[in-house]
């Protein structure tokens, strides 16, 4: 009897959602994006122009890429999210999980303007499109570090002992950063032991799990030099903190924030239109101004003050970024995380 009542209760709840949903669907589009300054920028640069042009309200579903992927997997078959921003790496996992739909170049004419590196295809269909690049570069306290660092090796300098920070594998950049170091140091791709041995000798203040923890460490002076995302570092600098961001001579590892059309959304046309809006030169330039994302749309020009802060540094372009194949990274993720736990994350 209890279960009967529970079932009736659930049925009533479901009926409730079924009734309210189609009504909301006519006037709104649900888009998943990240929190903080990212979400604000997506709203200003993409959602607001989209609503202005179409009259369709955009409902934000705020979460990190991983959380969004989890939600999409739960909603598989009957999605309530129509369009989703997810980072490189998670994007490939979403494709493999079968939650991304095909982006039709006919319905998204601006796709033709996007640089080929930022159009992601699987089985001949486009499943994701990059809306801007960001990198993990050298970040330093301009008051405590007199000569800007020019190489990743500078992190091992004695004067920085105990005041360095780099990402841990719990951060999205952690595993790729280890592979990046392995590559620039010329170690064999299938053997990370030398890289781990070297990382073990790095005297750090902390390994950061979240971008927020990194920002906090630079802000409090706990770390004076290390790695940080271009978006986070420039955000600190713009707030008036003595923080600099440099692209070292070995280059930077980078990835991008990508848009996905959720498979099975009943609002295909509106979702495609939203993606098209995000790929206009205006939206791309706006994201470059707000977040210093390197534009994925070709021929976008920004003010020199903004250009200086793009993820590839002064005078660079997308060609200068080390964009790894996420499929390789995801394949080795478990093993690298495990090795890190045993070698680095214990005293």
């Amino acid at each position: 009897m209890t279960s009967l009542r529970a079932a009736a209760c659930c049925a009533a709840l479901m009926a409730g959602t079924a009734v309210t949903h189609p009504a909301a669907a006519q006037t709104s589009l649900t888009v998943a994006w990240y929190g903080g300054n990212w979400g604000d920028a997506f709203r200003t640069c993409v959602a607001e122009p989209f609503t202005k042009a179409t009259g369709i309200k955009v409902v934000a579903e705020i979460g990190t890429s991983t959380v969004t992927l989890a939600k999409l997997q739960q909603q598989k078959g009957a999605p309530t999210i129509d369009v989703a921003w997810m980072d490189g790496g998670i994007s490939e996992l979403a494709q493999a999980a079968g939650v991304t739909g095909a982006i039709d170049p006919q319905a998204v004419p601006n796709l033709a303007k996007v640089s080929p590196e930022a159009v992601y295809k699987a089985d001949g269909a486009v499943y994701a499109v990059g809306t801007g690049y960001y990198s993990l570069g050298l970040t330093y306290n301009t008051q405590k570090v007199r000569t800007p660092p020019t190489s990743w090796d500078d992190l091992w300098k004695p004067e920085f002992a105990g005041a360095v920070t780099i990402p841990s594998p719990a951060n999205s950049s952690g595993v790729p950063f280890i592979l990046f170091l392995n590559k620039i140091w010329g170690n064999p791709a299938n053997d990370l032991s030398k890289t781990f041995a070297r990382l073990k000798t790095l005297d750090t203040a902390l390994y950061f799990d979240s971008s927020g923890a990194a920002s906090n460490a630079y802000q409090s002076g706990e770390a004076i030099v290390g790695a940080h995302f271009s978006v986070g570092a420039w955000d600190l600098a713009d707030k008036g903190l003595p923080i600099g961001f440099a692209v070292p001579k070995e280059g930077v590892w980078a990835t991008d924030a990508r848009l996905h059309l959720v498979k099975g959304t009943p609002r295909q046309t509106e979702a495609a239109r939203f993606i098209d809006t995000a790929l206009t030169p205006q939206a791309s330039a706006c994201l470059a101004e707000k977040l210093y994302l390197g534009p994925s749309v070709q021929g976008v020009s920004v003010a020199p003050e903004v250009e200086r802060k793009l993820p590839w540094g002064v005078g660079g372009s997308v060609k200068n970024l080390q964009l790894f194949n996420w499929a390789d990274i995801n394949r080795d993720r478990g093993a690298i995380t495990d090795a890190w736990n045993r070698e680095i994350a214990r005293q």
């Binding site: 719990a170 750090t204 203040a205 902390l206 390994y207 950061f208 736990n341 994350a345 214990r346 005293q347």
Partner: peptide, 13 residues
Amino acid sequence: GGKITVFPMLIFQ
């Protein structure tokens, strides 16, 4: 600071 690992951190990873 990522230097000590407790069990819930392994689970979260």
